[in-house]
Nucleic acid binder design. Structure first.
Lengths: 248, 248
DNA sequence: CGGTGCATTGATAGGTGTCAAACTGTGTGG
DNA sequence: CCACACAGTTTGACACCTATCAATGCACCG
């Protein structure tokens, strides 16, 4: 299964782009050296499945670059995305043998993987890893709960605006830009993936995006590039406080 | 704010009913002794608010008995329950100053509280606590993601059946009964609270419960006491595998 | 040039929300 | 003890939002 094509070149932890945000963020130099010994990189192409729900988990790891999604599927095919994995996000659950969700690369993806058992051993001995993982898991729990409000109580239009807000905000922080003035970004998801995230059909997603465009809340160049002339207007459409306090 | 009426009698950790499941589950005797020093009990009456979203968190703690809910509210009043807190569940987030959600007692409630700062200090020095909290947080994250599927993709009828399944299952494990044969339990939630949990209106909740009753999936005695003649039938209505693998 | 994947748009149906009224059980005060 | 208020619940009529089914458009590529 592993071959040269998906085994990427080894990279130094010290120069890693997610060094200060991933599960290893708090590790000392000597702890990083121990991690170096059990880590390896893997590449996935856009559309490729990283893990199937129910499969044995051979590894856990961090997203280094690219975007992956976590989805659940019902027997009749209905799907719900339950997580969006961005660079520095952690994949897998220490202490559990099989994957609970499908993990799919939506863009080309590079992961920093640790074989599961050695990582679990190391977690026992390295509080810095467990502490950081707790912090990250608490953040993910908050994000999941925010999303429950979106799924349970928001209208289709508000759902779209909420998703666009999140992507815009993340893009702004990632590129160290403020949230003042017009924002522009690319949608990393297809209409169908957005629908899976929002609990809608892809037709409704398309219609609501067209409506937001028609109303001047967003401007589209092509299908995927979005410009937001006034972020506070978008936040208002999302049903959040215009201050954006929700995700602070 | 604290007075004799909501300050409950001190209780020994060793004889605590949630001793083996709460955040202190892995603590040694000497660690428990240190926890004893910073803990105190508080009682809340049904309907009382434990913490308001945005308030300063003075304490974290465990639910000892009773049930509490975690809810988010939008400016226009729409509400979504994002968590159901049962005995042994943990309340609060170490490392954060203010509450992110409203915590409300839906039944009479007893909590084992720790003042926040001493608890955070102790967590640093006591891996057993941090380890257990990580495990519990991962479980909660899984539960939240399960619920995202319910909110995003299930019909009203399936939502009701899902909620009843969860309550029935929990009740069975709590009382050490198997899931074979008929199950009976009391609903700990009003129709409105169920609606807040399921992302529905209380009218729709009422209608779907009536429909499940009419179809023989459940039997009602009064408004709150439910009997499930055939659990696999209920699970089928919930859209889950009849084996119940989802929550295993 | 046609094929394929993705997206948009239209017509229609169905599920759930909204508004309104009536019912039930419980507790309270006269 | 009864009358009443009140919260919680049930049921009905109707409107509206979103899903469904279907056709078309668009960009990219063999």
């Amino acid at each position: 299964m592993l071959n040269e094509r998906n085994l990427a070149a080894h990279q130094d932890c010290e120069s890693c782009p997610i060094r200060h945000r991933a599960v290893c963020a708090r590790c000392e130099t000597n702890e990083l050296e121990r991690l170096e010994e059990i880590k390896y990189y893997r590449k996935f192409e856009a559309g490729q499945t990283v893990i199937w729900s129910g499969d044995r988990m051979e590894f856990v790891g961090s997203v280094v670059s690219g975007i992956a999604t976590l989805t659940q599927t019902m027997e009749d095919g209905r799907r719900q995305m339950v997580g969006l994995l961005l660079p520095s996000d952690f994949v897998g659950r220490p202490g559990r043998g099989t994957a609970a969700y499908d993990v799919v690369a939506t863009t080309d993806l590079v992961m920093c993987c640790f074989r599961k058992t050695p990582f679990e051993d190391m977690m026992q001995k390295t509080p810095h890893i467990a502490q950081r993982l707790l912090e990250m898991t608490l953040d993910e729990l908050d994000a999941a709960r925010e999303w429950m409000l979106v799924l349970g109580r928001k209208t289709a239009r508000e759902k779209i605006a909420s998703l666009l807000s999140i992507i815009a905000r993340r893009d702004a922080t990632l590129n160290l830009r403020g949230t003042e003035g017009p924002l522009a970004f690319d949608l990393p998801l297809t209409r169908e993936a957005m629908a899976d995230y929002l609990g809608l059909t892809l037709e409704t997603v398309s219609r609501q995006i067209s409506a937001l465009k028609r109303d001047g809340v967003i401007v589209l160049q092509g299908k995927r590039h979005v410009t937001v002339p006034d972020m506070s207007l978008l936040l208002e459409e999302a049903g959040d406080d215009a201050d954006g306090g929700v995700f602070a």
